[in-house]
Design a protein around this nucleic acid. Structure first.
Lengths: 237, 237
DNA sequence: ACCTGAACACCGTTCAAGT
DNA sequence: ACCTGAACACCGTTCAAGT
């Protein structure tokens, strides 16, 4: 306190007015979350990382939740930017495939974003909500433009969306708990004799069901089911 | 069951030796979790509920995580019991439909179980793992018995499993955060003009995509896709 | 062998200041 | 207007006992 201090010894000098900002806090929060994990992100830890007193953060965000919501907004922004544009004239199958594959890839590469947007589901701001809805609207337009009724288009979108999120979330949760590998899983069972089918498949596949291959299979079956639905619909006026 | 305790004054008499048990603690933990929510279940809160000192719990469970794992085991036990038996000779479509509908219903009715088994994914004991695998084995046997290759049977199982879990988890997460109803969602957008499709659908459906109707649709499309897959498979030897 | 409170490190948050 | 530490209530966990 007495003198402006050099950085040695764990002492921290008082920050000047205006030297901190909401943006800097948010950025720091992402750094900490990516270094540890979102649910281990704490206010003291973040303050240490930023080199400020804990309570300084509270001037910009009155609750931790407010900070998390601000982070979510940034996450949505990046998410929307990471989605590939819809190329005009492409088939609905390709549009769905590409969009949701990009979504899965984004969350796979950015675990913190998945934790923020999928597992925590903090409230989105109006702007973030709007951006996400615009994406959905564009996909629905493609589906309807190629023959789906609006109701079916929504159901199609929801089905593949829930499947994709299920894949991502389930995978993420497995990773957050202590990553039970196939080895530990199979070791856990003393006796595979009563389960010949799983015993054989276990050697070949991880059992989580969230691999790239699994995802491709699921999407393939869904698209197949959607095609039949489209064919069975009454013809367009 | 007998709770000999005075709720008055906050005073607590010393419990006799043997008056507490792992089972009683687990039961109490479920009661607290169901009363509040799993992630608000704390050791002090649980001790208060049981009328014991906090540290007494630590004689039976050396970490909170140990307690949660024990709870998970009980949950798996109840889950397996809640699954309907496979009636002999039933079609694979019906077997999948009934099994996963029961799964969804179970978690829908027992939020704490969903939090324990799906969101937290604490490590299962050998016995719990075995019980779950036996269920999966039985379903795979039905699929293979009616013509699916073992590989396809596993993929089919994984696809519908991930979709079902996605539906349950997404719904649960929405409920855990402050339940954004359709009203608040639509109110959040000042301007629906650029999104005519969603504007119209919003009036008709909740946008979460996890309703009974959504689930039935998704399962229907998956089963449809599975049927095509089965038809396209090389005929059985 | 079982149950206990005191005590510690950590967290989110409030408050009454300092500059 | 911005940044600060002291302080509080709460949590998970350890320890050195009591019975």
């Amino acid at each position: 306190m007495s003198k402006p201090e050099s950085t040695d010894g764990g002492q921290r000098t008082r920050r000047n007015r205006g030297s901190l900002s909401a943006q800097e806090i948010i950025n720091g929060a992402f750094e900490v979350a990516e270094g540890i994990s979102l649910d281990k992100l704490s206010m003291p830890e973040l303050a240490r990382h930023l080199g400020v007193g804990v309570t300084s953060i509270y001037w910009y965000f009155r609750k931790k939740e407010e900070l998390l919501n601000a982070m979510t907004d940034v996450a949505v922004e990046r998410f929307v930017r990471a989605m590939p544009p819809l190329t005009p004239g492409e088939t609905w199958q390709r549009a769905l495939r590409v969009h949701f594959a990009a979504q899965r890839e984004f969350y796979g590469a950015h675990a913190t974003m998945a934790d923020l947007m999928l597992i925590r589901t903090s409230t989105y701001s109006r702007d973030a909500t709007r951006r996400v809805f615009e994406l959905e609207e564009a996909l629905l337009a493609i589906l309807i433009g190629q023959g789906f009724t609006p109701d079916n288009a929504l159901h199609v979108y929801n089905a593949i969306s829930v499947y994709t999120r299920g894949n991502i979330i389930h995978d993420r949760i497995l990773r957050l708990s202590d990553t039970p590998t196939l080895d530990t899983r199979s070791r856990r069972l003393s006796d595979w004799r009563s389960m010949p089918i799983l015993a054989a498949l276990t050697a070949k596949y991880p059992l989580a069901g969230t691999s790239d291959e699994d995802y491709a299979f699921g999407v393939g079956r869904l698209l197949c089911g959607f095609e039949i639905l489209l064919a069975e619909q009454p013809e367009a006026v």
